[in-house]
């Protein structure tokens, strides 16, 4: 990709790979450094977490844009942070393996991610350790499965068209 500028930025604790896609800064911390990275970013001035979601790369494993040294995994937790003072956004993409889909919860750093993490668990089955209310949010509580995973179908039902009654 021509607009991808791959660079490695030395962070205080551990080196975190970063790229800039379409002028948007992206960091790739691994799971162990995830909380520490977010915390240092928060202390830098990223004052609000705008978004948290998950992408399931099951059928598109060879995604482009990953810098060297980052091992692609099936799930990717995507977190968006916003520094209002400098008007800068940063996006974090955390690789989460399919056999152990857990990441630490951001609740203590950014309480606003509470509903988003529940949604990510509900739709993708990625669990967040330390979340105060780790439960389904959008689907019924007795639902089986996580519908936005790529190995789940869209769940379409053929519509049965009925004829109108003869008596009108």
């Amino acid at each position: 990709m021509s607009e991808t500028d791959v660079a490695t930025e030395a962070h205080e604790d551990a080196p975190v790979a970063s790229t800039a896609l379409f002028g948007q800064a992206v960091l790739y911390p691994d799971r162990g450094a995830y909380l520490a990275t977010v915390e240092s970013l928060r202390d830098e001035g990223y004052c609000t977490a705008t978004d948290l979601t998950v992408v399931d790369y099951l059928t598109h494993p060879g995604r482009s844009g990953l810098p060297g040294g980052v091992q692609p995994e099936r799930f990717e937790v995507v977190v968006g942070l916003f520094d209002h003072a400098r008007r800068e956004r940063v996006r974090l993409r955390i690789q989460v393996p399919a056999d152990d889909p857990t990441v630490p919860s951001l609740f203590d750093l950014f309480p606003g991610t509470e509903a988003m993490e529940r949604e990510a668990w509900d739709l993708f089955g990625v669990s967040f350790e330390g979340h105060p209310d780790h439960s389904r949010i959008l689907l019924p509580e007795d639902w089986v499965g996580h519908p936005l995973r790529k190995d789940e179908g869209i769940g379409a039902i053929p519509v049965q068209f009925k004829s109108a009654s003869d008596r009108r």
């Binding site: 689907l139 519908p147 789940e152 179908g153 869209i154 769940g155 379409a156 039902i157 519509v159 049965q160």
Partner: peptide
Amino acid sequence: SSGGMFNNYAIVQG
């Protein structure tokens, strides 16, 4: 009436 354009896991089809 019929689920409309949302024929998926979440919506009752009618």
